[in-house]
Design a protein around this nucleic acid. Structure first.
Length: 320
DNA sequence: GGGCCAATAT
DNA sequence: TATATTGGCC
């Protein structure tokens, strides 16, 4: 507060301190090493000139502004503020796999005296927290996992294991699970009513019918109240809602063995994958959100095979 | 330690 | 707003 941005003859103060053009990787420069590109069958970008880049930018802009808008204006303006360091890469939902993009937060600026905190410390390693974005696909996997385990076993740890997603942590799942349970409870509560306008994500994927297997007897002597909620057991009684009687992903609990999903990567050979979900197509999803799927993170996603995406990022993507 | 949940932070 | 983190509790 109190910081004023003065604009003088087109030059704003905020420009001070920004890296000079020379320090930046020009857009016209390909960020993908040739070997990498060929490894992923990525067509080598024809060297672009600055002019090309500019032209492309303009056409992008005009298409965004123009009638090109697919849905109601829902695009993130880049003009805004760099809110949280989470930058999302648009995802092509159709048939495409998840992408994870890690943006390096130029946490630089040691110059900024009072860098209040954040997690400085850590010797140089500015590890910013990773924020996982639950894309429809990821969520689908999550729901499937929950469905496969009985409610009883659907705990963060097992869900996480079942999902078998590379950088996913128990905390990620726990957090999501918490929210998901709330959503499910709400839905069951008012057994008729569409989703509450929020949670488009959850609404787009039917919540699986209540536990099948899992002996109901085993009372969760544990503290949690989920199992024995006072609310009417949703059991079959619910009937009314549960929109589509969605075919269960899997009839019984045979180990689903989903194929590991790499959040960002995809097999070099492209679309052969996702067999599991492909089976049940509900073309009902029309999400109107930007599906930014990615995780911005700094920690090493141990287990990750690749890290980058052919798009940007990866500049200081060391170790290989 | 793991899990649940509510509240709170980012 | 969505996700993460924390604290209390079992």
């Amino acid at each position: 507060m109190g910081e004023e941005v003065r604009i003088d003859e087109g030059v704003a103060d905020w420009e001070v301190g920004l890296p000079s053009p020379d320090d930046l990787t020009p857009l016209s420069q390909s960020l993908i090493p040739a070997e990498l590109a060929s490894a992923f069958r990525i067509q080598a970008e024809p060297t672009r000139t600055l002019l090309d880049v500019n032209r492309a930018s303009q056409s992008t802009l005009s298409s965004l502004r123009g009638g090109g808008g697919h849905s109601s204006g829902n695009f993130k303006s880049f003009s805004g503020h760099v809110d949280d360091h989470v930058i999302a890469e648009e995802e092509v939902e159709e048939g495409s796999d998840l992408k994870k993009v890690r943006m390096e937060e130029s946490a630089d600026d040691p110059a900024i005296d009072n860098c209040t905190d954040d997690q400085s410390t850590a010797a140089g390693k500015t590890s910013k927290k990773a924020r996982l974005v639950w894309t429809p696909k990821l969520h689908k996997r999550f729901v499937d996992a929950v469905a496969h385990l009985g409610l009883k076993n659907a705990v963060p740890k097992t869900i996480m294991q079942l999902m078998n997603v590379d950088g996913l942590t128990r905390e990620n799942v726990a957090s999501h699970l918490q929210k998901y349970r709330l959503y499910v409870k709400r839905m069951q509560g008012l057994s008729n009513e569409g989703p509450s306008s929020s949670d488009h994500l959850f609404a787009s994927i039917p919540v699986p019918p209540q536990s099948f297997n899992e002996s109901s007897s085993a009372g969760p002597s544990h503290g949690n109240g989920i199992a024995n909620g006072s609310h009417s057991s949703v059991g079959n009684g619910g009937t009314a809602n549960n929109h589509v009687g969605m075919p269960m992903p899997m009839p019984y609990p045979p180990p689903p063995q989903m194929m590991p999903m790499q959040m960002m990567g995809m097999a070099p050979h492209g679309h052969g994958f996702q067999g599991y979900e492909a089976a049940h197509s509900h073309h009902n999803h029309h999400y109107q959100q930007q599906y930014s799927s990615m995780v911005q993170q700094q920690r090493d996603w141990s287990g990750n095979k690749y890290n980058g995406y052919p798009h940007h990022v990866t500049q200081n993507n060391n170790k290989f």
